[in-house]
C-alpha cells in the first residue's frame, strides 16, 4: 500500500543557520489519522506548512523529500506543485477568526477551489458545499453562505472551514491545531465532527496538536516532536500504555487529566531536557549538508 503522505528525512533551516526540522520522517497511510504532537516551537506546524507548500520564504528545506500521493513535491515546478496540493490536500486552519477573508461572503470562499481549481460547474459546486454544510450540522446553508465571516460565531466559522476542506474530497487534510482557538465546549463538538467526517469520507489526516487529550481521542498513530526532531513514533494506544521516550512520559505528566483535575502537574524535567539536548547535538553533529552550523 503506497502512503498518502511520505515525508522522508526532511530538514529545514532559517537564514541564521538555525535548524527548525531535523531529518523528520513520517508517513500517513490512506484513511489514517496521524497525530503530530509537540510543544510550541517544536516544528509541528512547520511540517504541515511544508506539506502544503506554504512555508514562510525565510525557511529553506535543505534536505529530504515530501511525496504526496506519489508525487515528489520537491521535484515539481511551483505551478505544478500548487495544482497537486490544491487537488489532493486541504487545510483546516488553527484560527477560524482569521482564516476567512473578512470582505468576501462565505459561500464563494467555500466554492472557489471547486470552481476555479478543480473546474467544477458553479451549480455542482454549490450543491456540494450545501451537502457538506449539512454534514457539519449547519441548518441554514443559505444564510451562512450569504453571510460575511464576522456575522458568524467562531464555532460556526470552524464548521464552515471544515466543510470547505472536505468539500473537494482531498486525499489528505492537514488539521493545524483546529480546536486550539475555540472554547472548550465547542472544541469537543468540532473534534467529534472532524472524526466523523474523516470516517465517512475516508480522508487521511495529519493532525497537528499540542494536546495529548486530543491525540488520544482522534488518532491511530502519533509522532512526538521535540525541537524539530522526531523523538517517538507509535500506535496511539501503545503510546499511552507504554511511552518509550522520557520526553513523551514527561509530556504526559504535564497534561491535566479529567479524572483527576486537582492533581498537580509536572513540568518537563531538567534531566529530560538535557538528554534531549544531547540527542540533538549528536544528530546535528552527524548531519552533513551545511556542516555543524545548526545549533538548536
Amino acid at each position: 500500500m503506497s502512503a498518502c503522505l511520505d515525508i522522508s528525512n526532511l530538514s529545514a533551516r532559517l537564514p541564521s543557520g538555525q535548524r527548525v526540522l531535523r531529518s523528520v520522517s513520517l508517513t500517513v497511510q490512506p484513511g489514517e489519522v496521524r497525530a503530530l504532537v509537540g510543544e510550541s516551537g517544536a516544528g509541528k506546524s512547520m511540517i504541515g506548512k511544508a506539506v502544503l507548500g506554504v512555508l514562510p520564504p525565510s525557511v529553506r528545506i535543505v534536505e529530504g523529500s515530501i511525496h504526496l500521493e506519489g508525487a515528489d513535491l520537491g521535484q515539481l515546478s511551483a505551478k505544478e506543485r500548487r495544482r497537486v496540493i490544491g487537488a489532493k490536500a486541504a487545510l483546516i486552519p488553527q484560527d477560524p477568526l482569521t482564516a476567512l477573508n473578512p470582505s468576501r461572503r462565505v459561500g464563494p470562499q467555500m466554492t472557489d477551489r471547486l470552481i476555479h481549481i478543480l473546474g467544477w460547474a458553479a451549480d455542482k459546486a454549490d450543491r456540494r458545499v450545501r451537502q457538506l454544510l449539512d454534514e457539519v450540522h449547519i441548518r441554514e446553508p443559505d444564510r451562512v453562505m450569504r453571510s460575511y465571516p464576522h456575522e458568524l460565531s467562531g464555532g460556526m466559522r470552524q464548521r464552515v472551514l471544515i466543510a470547505a476542506a472536505f468539500a473537494s474530497e482531498p486525499r489528505l487534510i492537514v488539521a493545524d491545531e483546529p480546536t486550539t482557538a475555540l472554547d472548550v465546549t465547542v472544541q469537543k463538538q468540532i473534534l467529534r465532527l472532524i472524526a466523523q467526517l474523516q470516517q465517512e469520507h475516508g480522508t487521511a489526516i495529519l493532525f497537528v496538536t499540542h494536546d495529548l487529550g486530543v491525540v488520544a481521542k482522534i488518532s491511530q498513530r502519533v509522532t512526538v516532536l521535540y525541537a524539530g526532531k522526531v523523538v517517538e513514533e507509535a500506535d496511539t494506544p501503545a503510546l499511552f500504555a507504554d511511552p518509550q521516550h522520557a520526553y513523551t512520559r514527561a509530556l504526559m505528566a504535564a497534561t491535566p487529566k479529567y479524572t483527576d483535575p486537582m492533581a498537580s502537574l509536572m513540568p518537563v524535567d531538567d534531566t529530560v531536557l538535557a538528554g534531549l539536548a544531547a540527542e540533538i547535538a549528536v544528530a546535528d553533529h552527524d548531519w552533513k549538508p551545511g556542516g555543524g552550523t545548526g545549533r538548536g
Partner: peptide, 17 residues
C-alpha cells in the same frame, strides 16, 4: 501573511490570483 491568504494558496490559487 494572514491566514486566509495562506488558505487560498493551499487551495491552489496562483500568487497573482
Amino acid at each position: 501573511t494572514l491566514d486566509y491568504v495562506t488558505l487560498a494558496r493551499v487551495k491552489g490559487f496562483s500568487e497573482t490570483s
